[in-house]
Structure formats: structure tokens, C-alpha cells
Nucleic acid binder design. Structure first.
Length: 276
DNA sequence: ATGGCCTCCTGTATGC
DNA sequence: TGCATACAGGAGGCCA
């Protein structure tokens, strides 16, 4: 599922095509999503409105309209957004569709339906955003997301650092893949208690997180099985994976076999020799 | 407060 | 081939 880089790739795709487009129609196939606003609210607030900006916070996409309402989209594990000519056959998991004034349709496809689509009118959007993002940490690219900040957040925590990164309350947008990759790059074992990372290691880890996320965005994200950008094309950062999904294969640094364990139920990959 | 576990849902891979 | 099982990139809720 999409982590920060994949969501950012989708955002960049939408940003090229959505601004200035007016919504002509909205259709739902009635299948429930994890969270979804009522069809009547979507139609009332979106039809006749024009998209202005396409933003992102953590793994959420924020689409602002000219009536100042805000469409919030979360892709969950398998959500995809794509733009298609109106006549394109609708696929099984195309759950929601927005017809635009240029004959293209924005479609939300989500096999597992863990995604969310929420519309907030101008009056409630500020409150809604505050509640939605209340527990979410800093964006990794934000200037105030520093080693000292991370160290302070992790102080006293015995939780494995991988879970600390993925949990999003300190730093946003890092999921299973990029947590694994960043910890390898920084030479830190995923099961090391978050509170037992030195300042020097936090400096290195943050630097690697930023480098890897940027590189992944430049690669169009990671497509393991189902991530696609809005243009329907996959990313290729997966060819740069050092540890993720590489159990038993040679560590790119020392050539010893990569280990696979489960941490909080999630697949975890690391090199026991390079990561301490 | 913290951390572990479970759940939502479907598709795919693997093993018997 | 068919069937059962495990697992998948997220995230929120519940419980000890």
C-alpha cells in the first residue's frame, strides 16, 4: 500500500490535471469504504465546484475546491486514483467516480476497500482537519523534523524503533517498506528500543529517511503488486530495495543473508550484521 | 500511557 | 485442479 512516496506520486499526477477542472457528476457503486461521506453530501458539495489545489498531509490527499470545501482521500492498502475517458469500461473495484468538465473521469479503485473518501464543507473543514490530523506527527521533509525532535519523542520508549517510525505520531508517512529500508540504510536494528537510539544515530536515520523517500518519489514510488500512479503506470523504486522482501538474499553491504522476522505482526527485514 | 492484538476486505501465492 | 491457509503497502479500536 501506498506510503508517503506513493501518495506524493499520486498527488503530483493529480496536480497536473485536476486544478481548474469542474466536477460534472459523482457516482458511487454503493460499496462501503472504511470511511466515506454520504453520496448526497459528495454530490451537493462537489457538483459544479472547481478543483483548486491538490495537497498532501501524511498519507492523506487534500483536494480543495473553489467553494472552499475539502475532499480528503486516503488510499488505504490498495486504493488507486486514475483519470480515464468517460467511456472507459468501469472495473469491478471502481467504487467512486467523478466526471470532470473535460470528458475525463477521476476513478477511485480499491480492491480491499480500506480507503477513505471524505468531503467537508467550508464551515467544518478546519475542525475536521484538526481532528483528522491531531495525532499525526511532523512531515519528514519539514525543517522542524530534526534529530533532537525525534530523540525527544522517543525518549523513554521501549517500543521497537521500526514501530515507532511506522506509528506516525512522531513523523508521518512512513509505512512498512520505508521503515525497513531506512533502518537498513542507517544501520539500526528494527527491534532496537526507540528510546535507545543515540543522537548521532537519529541524525543519520532522519537523513536516510529523507534521502530514501525523495529517491522513491523520483522513481514514481514502489510497485510491489498493485500500486499505480494516476497515469496507470507503476513506480520502480522496488528495484532499489536493499532488504524489503529480500529474506535469505545477500545483504548488499556485507553479503550475509537478510533476516525476516515479524514485528507487531508486520514483515520485517534486516541484516543482523550491518544493523545494530 | 504503553504496547500487543485484532479487524475491516479481497486478491494472490503457496502447499497439500 | 481444487481447496485451505497465510499474507499483503494502513490505521483505528480494544484490552491488559
Amino acid at each position: 500500500m501506498p506510503e508517503l512516496p506513493e501518495v506524493e506520486v499520486v498527488r503530483l499526477g493529480l496536480e497536473r490535471f485536476l486544478p481548474d477542472r469542474t466536477v460534472i457528476d459523482y457516482r458511487s457503486n454503493g460499496k462501503p469504504l472504511r470511511l466515506c461521506s454520504e453520496t448526497q453530501d459528495m454530490r451537493r458539495l462537489l457538483i459544479g465546484s472547481r478543483f483548486l489545489t491538490v495537497g498532501r498531509r501524511a498519507k492523506y490527499l487534500l483536494l480543495e475546491l473553489d467553494n472552499r470545501s475539502l475532499l480528503v482521500i486516503h488510499l488505504g492498502m490498495t486504493g488507486r486514483l486514475g483519470l480515464f475517458p468517460e467511456k472507459t469500461p468501469v472495473l469491478t473495484h471502481d467504487h467512486r467516480r467523478w466526471l470532470l468538465d473535460n470528458g475525463l473521469e477521476l476513478r477511485f479503485n480499491d480492491a480491499r476497500r480500506f480507503g477513505s473518501l471524505l468531503i467537508f464543507p467550508e464551515e467544518t473543514r478546519a475542525t475536521a482537519e484538526r481532528e483528522l490530523f491531531a495525532g499525526i506527527g511532523l512531515e519528514p521533509f519539514a525543517p522542524d523534523c530534526t534529530a533532537d525532535y525525534m530523540r525527544a519523542k522517543a525518549a523513554g520508549r521501549t517500543l521497537p524503533v521500526k514501530q515507532f517510525l511506522m506509528d506516525g505520531r512522531a513523523v508521518a508517512g512512513i509505512g512498512n517498506i520505508y521503515a525497513n529500508e531506512a533502518l537498513f540504510a542507517a544501520g539500526i536494528r528494527p527491534d532496537r528500543p526507540a528510546g535507545r537510539i543515540s543522537r548521532k544515530k537519529w541524525l543519520l536515520l532522519l537523513q536516510e529517511i529523507i534521502r530514501i523517500l525523495r529517491h522513491a518519489i523520483a522513481c514514481g514510488g514502489s510497485s510491489i503488486s498493485d500500486f499505480l500512479g494516476t497515469d496507470g503506470k507503476g513506480g520502480y523504486f522496488q528495484v532499489h530495495f536493499s532488504v524489503y522482501g529480500r529474506a535469505g538474499q545477500a545483504c548488499p553491504r556485507c553479503f550475509k543473508p537478510i533476516k525476516a522476522i515479524r514485528l507487531a505482526g508486520r514483515s520485517t527485514f534486516f541484516c543482523a550484521s550491518c544493523q545494530r
